[in-house]
Design a protein around this nucleic acid. Structure first.
Lengths: 337, 337
DNA sequence: AAGGTAACTGCACACATGTGCAATACTTTA
DNA sequence: TAAAGTATTGCACATGTGTGCAGTTACCTT
């Protein structure tokens, strides 16, 4: 569409001409461990600085690894996602990679387009934070020698590395905490996202309750957000048999739920109502909330991702599970009254 | 350090061989508007799909524009930054660009490294969301034909496009709202970040108050965060002559400030204390806060950035100012009692 | 001083692409 | 049917690197 002139960058040849050496000398000057005499190196550096030369990583990427890692992510404004992107880009950078962010919707078509971009730019690896990539494209990535790491998507896709938090543990522990607090009528709040992680937390919680002879009212609101949490609370407390202990599969849901429960229904947390979330986003620690929750250990997870990328042979297809960390705050009573 | 084999991608030559045509034919098949017969195009597409071929954008980037845009950003977990990154990546993608995110600290050394990466990857353009890039590097970028867009950094750097919100307007309006609410003792809460934007909001507010014959107590806490807002509140209300109306240069500061004022000092908002923020992050609208604030119109700003990139001739060095939108909520009294 | 060795340098190739130019195949017109 | 015109194709070049290989230089040892 646009016939824009490409930017005119300075090439190694120009530097070589100015320094009066061969282009190879320039290349070697900028290559770790290559053999160049101190004299030529100095001449080259001088010319390079004068001209403002910077090695072209695109061209370099033609011969060897591109050092590009693609990050496929949706819902980037969600606090937990923002933190993950932050930490990942940081750690990837620190290990010499550069991050391309592809912002998708969670629908498959959109993710497919993202995966194609990954291939177009010859990324060494693709990290998928959200959405469900189609198996066929994953295979293409892997066939081309790319590494694929899926985070918190537990669809087992052949050849990709999987990494996620132990949702089952959170579901069981949440139930334990609520029971210990003496809650009689349990509730579970989830979104309609249908992500495997969310579903797993829900199912384990409900099953564990059933095993203990307790019933759970499941409420499914809209997308994973504060507003959905509010709406869920209005639905839950707008009728009889309202719960006195709820597990929200996400902190955002929990915070919206708490606000409506307190402000619109006059409930006291944790006296009348105990609330547990999941993620440990920053807002959960704010003094208005003090939400008991499970922290996703993002730092160790990101470390694990970087490790996988640096040592591809470690990339077993078996799923790596990381334990979430229970964060005890004041939205749950310590023991039954 | 690592002698990792580069991924083995399928090239246009392989497709050509399989389809029994020349490599040019393959190239033209994937080039908009090039001349290829329907028959060969079909043969090529078939071979390409069978092999899983994807055009190498790195190689393409050698001859023409790379379509890469670098986003230099710090404090990515801040809600306002996360939203900006989200919106920008989205819009850039929609206009055929791909985004490289470079996560920096705000210190100059770190930003310099980021700018060098930009040059290494032959980005068409660099968008700086945070930090202050050194003028010399900006010049290098521009000399190489790159476009540089600085957002909310009003250091006027020669040749770069500048874009930001009208901080002065917000400062003046904040004062007006507080005075109309009948506030007598004004306070201003700021961070120690020292960003030009923050400083400008502060100075305009203080000056406007002075012009009206009012005094303002300025409190400078730590970095721009909820915790700094809390700390500021403890400092402010822990002594005599505490304010009954404050302008916090950032929503995060305002929310922390409000929480401590209400929970630790028993103040009622807006009855005893009026609070105004800036940014309109999502949490400002949460029912626990209902913060009156000024919205950064991120969508129009991002549109403007994309426009600038697509029409470089529009990139005047003059600064583009966008008006923040006053968002009226309940943290300020509508009129004096 | 001769010979051997180690350090350095430059040539040429490979990497994957887009396109100008000339050659060829096909279609239309007189 | 021939000529003229048009659509398609392939060659070869250019883009900027890194590196194997061979050739050159400097230095050290005997």
């Amino acid at each position: 569409m646009s016939e824009l002139k490409p930017p005119s960058f300075v090439s190694a040849q120009m530097v070589a001409d100015r320094a009066g050496v061969s282009r190879s000398a320039v290349s070697r000057t900028f290559t770790e461990g290559a053999s160049v005499s101190e004299a030529t190196r100095r001449k080259v550096m001088e010319a390079a600085n004068a001209l403002g030369y910077h090695v072209n990583h695109l061209a370099r990427g033609l011969r060897e690894r591109s050092n590009i890692v693609c990050l496929v992510v949706a819902d980037m404004t969600t606090p937990i996602r923002a933190r993950m992107v932050d930490i990942l880009t940081r750690k990837l950078q620190a290990s010499g990679k550069i991050t391309m962010v592809i912002n998708t919707e969670t629908d498959t078509e959109s993710v497919s387009a993202a995966l194609r971009q990954t291939l177009n730019y010859r990324a060494d690896a693709t990290v998928v934070l959200s959405g469900t990539p189609p198996a066929s494209l994953i295979e293409t990535c892997i066939a081309n020698g790319q590494q694929v790491v899926l985070i918190n998507r537990d669809e087992r896709l052949q050849g990709s590395s999987n990494l996620g938090v132990d949702n089952a543990m959170a579901g069981r522990e949440a139930l334990y905490l609520l029971r210990r607090a003496g809650c009689q009528r349990l509730g579970l709040i989830t979104s309609n996202a249908g992500t495997a992680s969310l579903v797993e937390r829900e199912e384990v919680f409900v099953q564990a309750a059933r095993d203990a002879g307790l019933n759970v009212t499941v409420t499914q609101a809209g997308p994973t957000s504060y507003q959905s949490g509010q709406e869920a609370a209005r639905r839950v407390f707008g009728r009889s048999a309202s719960p006195d202990g709820v597990f929200c599969v996400t902190d955002l849901l929990a915070l919206g739920f708490m606000d409506v429960a307190r402000q619109e229904f006059g409930l006291k947390v944790p006296d009348d109502l105990c609330v547990i979330g999941f993620d440990d986003i920053e807002q959960a620690s704010w003094s208005s909330y003090q939400l008991t929750t499970f922290r996703q250990p993002l730092d160790p997870m990101a470390d694990e991702v970087v490790d996988l990328l640096l040592q591809p042979e470690r990339a077993v297809s078996e799923r790596r599970l990381i334990e979430p960390i229970p964060i005890w705050r004041r939205s749950v009573r310590p023991a039954s009254a």
